[in-house]
Write a protein that binds this DNA or RNA. Sequence first.
DNA 1: TTGCGTGTAAAGATCCTGTTACCGGAATCG
DNA 2: CGATTCCGGTAACAGGATCTTTACACGCAA
Lengths: 280, 280
Amino acid sequence: MSADTSEAQAGAAPQRSPSRLRVAVIDRDPGFLQVLTNRLDALRWDHRALSSAVTAEVLVAMRLNALVVDVAVLGPGSWEYLERVCARLPGLAVIVCTGPSSVVQRVRGLRLGADAWVTKPCHPEELICVMEAAVRRHRRTEMPAIEAAATVGEVTIRPDLYQAYRGTASLELTAREFEILHLLVQSDRVLRREEIYERVWGYAMAHGDRSVDVFVRKLRQKLRTASPEWSYIHTHFGVGYRFAPEADNGRPSEVDERQDAELSADLLDEEAGLDPAFAG
Amino acid sequence: MSADTSEAQAGAAPQRSPSRLRVAVIDRDPGFLQVLTNRLDALRWDHRALSSAVTAEVLVAMRLNALVVDVAVLGPGSWEYLERVCARLPGLAVIVCTGPSSVVQRVRGLRLGADAWVTKPCHPEELICVMEAAVRRHRRTEMPAIEAAATVGEVTIRPDLYQAYRGTASLELTAREFEILHLLVQSDRVLRREEIYERVWGYAMAHGDRSVDVFVRKLRQKLRTASPEWSYIHTHFGVGYRFAPEADNGRPSEVDERQDAELSADLLDEEAGLDPAFAG
DNA sequence: TTGCGTGTAAAGATCCTGTTACCGGAATCG
DNA sequence: CGATTCCGGTAACAGGATCTTTACACGCAA
């Protein structure tokens, strides 16, 4: 999954999208699985149901964020299994979701490394919230993923440096200029001024505000200085702005065509199911 | 605190105390408090009971690992309080422990940032296990193996000694100064002030706090004294700070050149479809 | 052509950062 | 136990960078 694709799909909230979580559920209760699956589909989480225990190595290969397990399914050796999985995947959120249990059992499960214990029957929404809480807590201490750089036309966008470059030469964009450029590049479609303003400034644009226009002008100026043979930001009269690198000599540039080809390839990847570990 | 012997572990981030956990309980049920207190004493955890809500600032000053709260005690505004506390202290494990509740309430609490929801009456041992699980998840990633020394530009970072050196001469960094330097060196990208603050201090930065700036100044001063020919910490106006050793005489140092060379490699990585979020 | 939307430019207001001084608590030392 | 030193944190100021506002010119569409 390339950064471009994930952002495109996120669409609504690209800046803080926790992206799709990966979850596996070890359970055999058809009703439980049905209901949970529906909710997970609605949330667009990657999920998979397992009817019995799989080795920790397989779980590693799945690159999960969370694991929901009914210890009743595991039968004897369930405690050892739980302990092994928690030890082998310290970054995995493990939620035990099972029928009535004793305090001793719950204490034991939590001490072995489970992050939460939910008693069936339970509302799927609550279980999902518990998963979110466990994953959220884990991610908080993680280093935020460094967003990948992207090259469009002759300029390279570097989210990790808050800057754009032509080769190794910085465009010297200010923070706000970079944010607008970054947004336009990611969106890859016409954006209305109100949309740009709201997503960059964080609140609604006042009527008659020309700030976006002024910033687009500054951006165009710096882009032209750095890369005079190309045009990048296009005005759609009465609508807004759109980013698309185009070489001045007629054709929309081979680079652009190549990117279009990649885009569809990414989308195909996504439709195919993202991860080989989940495909089988 | 139970033993108000002011901070045996001074100045250190709250997560650092390895054995004794600090817990506050916001509750009024004498029976509940009595039983829980006994168990916490037996475990030798630092604990304190509060009969009503205290401000987030006071909680910060307490340097807690976990907070147990009965939302019934908070009365109206309990949700806002919960949200405020969770936002202000992202590193604090918050456990709601209260009487019978609806799914909607539990979902709301968890979504606002609570780490777990335990229903009274509950066994104290189970509540303690839930606290442990929440706190444990934090530390798992907090306590990495002692890292190797790293030399950047002319200075050497020694995480094992909590100090930086130019050759054999110590820079005489204070604890906070070292933590900030260490974080910047590790990150290798622009870090916003809020990010730096949260990772070093352990809780959210208050609006308008200039502590990071002041510490960066102190760091720069000591770095300049020890290694005058280089510049290390770069300001990104409107964004934050970035660490990158650069020799004053023209060339940006071999480290930086290597990064530029890697630029194209990064792009290839992206096109190959690697997702940093799942790379672990 | 007219009216409205957009490009351009510059001035003023605002925000951001570097810097310094200062205060209170903690640790150290006598 | 008190004095001293060190450290972390806060407030204030000045200079500079950035953003917003305003004005006017230009171009597109009806």
